Amino acid sequence: MLLEDEVALLRKLPLLSRVDPGRLKVLCFASDRESFAPGEVLFREGEASAGAYVILSGSVDVFKSVEDSHYTKTGSDAAVAIIGQSSMLNDTPRRATVTALTDVEVLRINSSCFMQLMTSCCKSSEGVIRSLGAQLGDADVAKKAMSSDR
């Protein structure tokens, strides 16, 4: 995959959609591409985080033991997914175990590289903050809807 293709995929992520394409090129260049076979663990709940994983292709199973819940995330040209973004942003342990369901290709974004990008460009930081604010608002609305259903 070409660098421009990776940048285009990252721009599909709400978290990075407002980041300058030039900055995203730097982030892609500093990130690692990794492949996982079905059944391989990308990371385990409770492990220290070193970054987020952008699923470029394939599907993963996400399991949270506290909630005893499973859900699937899929990456494709139409719907790129990111996992581990909260751990990347606040240096907390992984909140779930993620296992490859199919052959999976990811771009692993290093936390320190991401934070350097954010601190070096106010405009990129503003875009990420606005995206996080929107995600928090969406999560709050969903939480209220779930509690009113009970």
Rank of each mutant, 00 (worst) to 15 (best):
L2K: 13
E4S: 13
D5W: 00
A8F: 07
A8P: 09
L9R: 09
L9E: 05
L10N: 02
L13W: 04
P14T: 06
L15F: 08
S17V: 03
R18L: 08
V19L: 02
P21Y: 05
P21H: 04
G22F: 07
L24K: 00
L24Y: 07
K25R: 13
V26G: 07
V26D: 13
L27Y: 01
L27P: 10
L27G: 03
C28P: 15
D32F: 02
D32Y: 04
R33T: 13
E34K: 14
E34W: 04
E34M: 09
S35W: 11
F43E: 01
R44I: 03
E45S: 04
G46M: 04
G46T: 08
E47P: 12
A48L: 09
A48T: 13
A48K: 11
A48H: 12
G51P: 15
Y53V: 04
I55Y: 01
G58L: 02
S59K: 09
S59T: 05
V60F: 01
D61G: 05
F63L: 09
S69F: 07
S69L: 11
T72S: 12
T72K: 11
K73S: 12
K73A: 12
G75K: 00
G75R: 00
V80S: 01
V80R: 00
A81L: 02
G84Q: 01
G84T: 03
Q85R: 02
Q85D: 15
S87G: 15
L89S: 03
N90D: 14
T92K: 06
T92I: 11
P93T: 07
P93Y: 03
R95C: 07
L101V: 06
V106W: 00
L107T: 05
L107Y: 03
L107A: 04
R108P: 14
S112M: 09
S112G: 11
C113V: 14
C113W: 06
F114E: 05
F114R: 02
M115D: 14
Q116T: 15
S120P: 15
C121I: 00
K123V: 07
K123I: 07
S124R: 01
S124T: 05
S125M: 08
E126A: 12
V128Y: 00
V128S: 02
I129C: 10
I129K: 05
R130F: 06
R130I: 08
S131N: 08
G133E: 06
L136V: 10
L136Y: 08
L136D: 12
D138G: 14
A139Q: 12
A139T: 09
D140A: 15
V141L: 11
V141M: 08
A142Q: 15
K143D: 13
K144E: 15
K144M: 14
A145L: 14
M146H: 14
M146D: 14
S148C: 09
